[in-house]
Design a binder for these strands. Structure first.
Length: 615
DNA sequence: GTAGGGTTAG
């Protein structure tokens, strides 16, 4: 008897014993079942799958008569059924199924199967291996290209960045194109994971390899450059890309504007705005919000209000973001009446205030010492179902710090921790500065010194507070040590830090050292601000160097720095003491024209000057 | 798909 005959006889004798049937036949049987009745019979009669092996699985999956989605069902069943662990689909099965799904244009499912490969330690393999398994299927170049693109995205989604770049390199070498859209997915994932270096490097690679960059990728990268302080580079990149016909849009300009605004770079802001105009890029509501922030931070609330007003003329609808911003700046300058009016207006417009909006109002109320109003707002917010969050707690703590109610502060801190919020870096610096205001410097210092042991790393503000304390004590050696320590920890002194140093030196009569510090900060690219100048003007006036003070006073004008009550007071009293009464009164008028309210010190100086006036 | 809102230091 031939072996074939024996086989047939045996098959007749034992028709249900699948071990004696060829792979081909088993595959046929499973395929037919799938075609005619779907997965259900295989589920209810698992014995049909007992003799399954990788070859059979692959035969079924590649059978063009079995619908791709039926293949997928079988695949998933094998993958998840605990009694079939020995039949889990292998790499070839994955790739075969991917080919079938591609033909059926089931791209989302394709991606899920690919995801199964890359997230499985046993199946994961170089892209070339997947491609070579797929190429056997002879589906053409377009398929392999799509496969690479998709694999690239799947790696990006899984934060497997090196692997993603590996696919990019492979595709590039093979002459395949990875879509810009996919590249953007990687850039975004890298950004979200804080992998900024890799993000910037990959963008360079995209440019180098001729990926057709879009304004979205460009803007994302510019934003990352700005965030790490490389604003010039961001601007240059924008110019370079404009040369390649990639035109910046309103979002790109907003990104740049934000960077300049954060740096208080007056020239930068104006340059960005005029570039927008030149390019014919109109403002949107985000641009207006940025401008309100810009004017607000320059203490130019009227200009901020003008932006808000003109927005309507430009046909831009306000949203809750911009309302929150304008409410915030009004609250900060103590105009709670206007802030509350705007709050009503936003509600009437059908906009819904959120925790940010209430936060701005509450902050304004506390800053203006209106504790009752603040408490009412906190209750109102909660009654609307908006919970007090970490920021609002810190705002409340700051409010009580400003009132010097330190017992209440500690009670709030306990309460906040009881609610599951951490005492964070804001809480620490707020309490420390509260203690300073009460001249409890030693307690403030010890709080700032010990916060790290309590698990919160001090930041620039904390270090600056500490430096300020030492400077006020005239302890410049300790202050320098703090600077060294903060720099070791990667925090660079900013304008406020320098202001603390400058003011400390001035108070000890060290004008020369103060000017040296101003030069040093400018060399580091830090902009002296209203505080820097006010301190220096005050120092020069005390030194009776009124002309030096006036020089600084005019320098402020050239730099478009706002002169506040403190600046004017220092200058007016300097002129008065020197007997230059006319000039003093002229400044007094100018100050009032600027909308500033002179305080008692100004009057005192002016009256004093009338007695010492030079004849 | 990229950008804008509330908290801390003088």
């Amino acid at each position: 008897m031939s072996s074939q005959k024996t086989f047939k006889t045996l098959k007749k004798l034992f028709p249900t014993d699948p071990s004696l049937i060829s792979n081909q036949e088993i595959a046929q049987k499973i395929s037919k079942t799938l075609i005619n009745s779907g997965l259900q019979p295989l589920k209810s009669t698992p014995s049909l799958l007992f003799n399954l092996n990788p070859h059979i699985t692959n035969l079924v999956l590649s059978n063009p008569l079995v619908p791709p989605l039926s293949c997928l069902s079988l695949f998933n069943f094998l993958q998840t059924n605990p009694s079939l662990t020995s039949h889990k689909p292998n790499l070839q099965a994955h790739v075969t199924l991917i080919c079938r799904l591609y033909q059926a244009k089931k791209f989302a499912q394709m991606k899920i199967v690919l995801n199964g490969i890359v997230s499985n330690d046993i199946l994961r393999c170089p892209v070339s291996e997947i491609v070579s398994l797929a190429e056997d299927e002879r589906k053409g170049v377009k398929f392999v290209e799509t496969l690479c693109d998709m694999l690239f995205r799947v790696y990006a989604d899984n934060k497997m960045f090196e692997e993603a770049v590996g696919v990019f390199d492979y595709a590039e070498k093979k002459g395949f194109e990875i879509e810009e859209r996919s590249c953007f997915v990687l850039l975004l994932a890298l950004k979200k994971c804080g992998q900024v270096d890799l993000c910037l490097r990959f963008f360079d690679q995209m440019v180098e390899k001729g990926v057709q960059i879009t304004v979205h990728s460009l803007t994302l990268v510019m934003n990352e450059l700005c965030k790490r302080g490389e604003v010039k580079k961001a601007k240059a990149l924008m110019g370079e890309m404009a040369g390649r016909q990639i035109k910046p849009n309103v979002v790109t300009y907003n990104t740049l504007l934000k960077a300049y605004i954060e740096r208080k770079d007056y020239e930068g802001v104006n340059e960005a705005l005029s570039l927008m105009e030149k390019d014919g890029v109109g403002y949107n509501v985000a641009t207006c919000t940025l401008l309100i922030d810009w004017f607000g931070s320059c203490e130019k609330i009227e200009d901020a209000e003008k932006v808000f007003e003109e927005m309507h003329e430009r046909g831009i609808d306000p949203d809750v973001y911009i309302y929150t911003s304008i409410i915030n700046w009004n609250g900060r300058v103590g105009n709670m009446k206007r802030a509350l009016f705007l709050f009503d207006e936003l509600t009437q417009r059908g906009l819904v205030p959120n925790v940010h909006t209430y936060g701005a109002l509450i902050n304004g109320a506390y800053k203006g010492g209106q504790m009752k109003m603040a408490d009412i707002l906190v209750n109102e917010m909660q009654s609307k179902g908006i919970d007090v969050n970490q920021v609002v707690f810190n705002t409340l703590i700051d409010g009580y710090c400003r009132k010097g109610m330190m017992d209440e502060v500690l009670r709030l801190q306990d309460f906040m921790e009881g609610k599951g919020f951490q005492t964070d870096v804001f809480t620490y610096s707020t309490i420390a500065s509260g203690l300073c205001k009460l001249n409890r410097n030693e307690e403030a210092k010890s709080l700032l010194f010990t916060m790290e042991e309590r698990g919160v790393a001090p930041n620039l503000v904390c270090f600056t507070t500490l430096i300020d304390i030492f400077c006020k004590e005239g302890n410049f050696v300790e202050a320098k040590q703090v600077i060294q320590e903060m720099e070791r920890k990667g925090e660079r002194p900013n304008t406020v830090t320098y202001n603390a140093l400058i003011d400390g030196h001035i108070k000890k009569g060290k004008m020369k050292e103060a000017h040296k510090l101003k030069k040093e900060m400018e060399d580091k690219g830090l902009m002296p601000d209203t505080y820097t100048y006010s301190s220096l003007i005050h120092g020069e006036c005390i030194d009776a160097k009124v002309d030096e003070a006036l020089k600084l006073f005019h320098e402020m004008y050239q730099r478009d720095l706002t002169r506040n009550v403190v600046t004017y007071t220092a200058m007016i009293s300097g002129l008065s003491k020197d007997g230059r009464t006319d000039e003093a009164f002229k400044l007094y008028d100018e100050m009032k024209r600027e909308g500033l309210t002179p305080d008692d010190r100004v009057y005192h100086s002016l009256v004093g000057s009338l007695h010492t006036a030079k004849s």
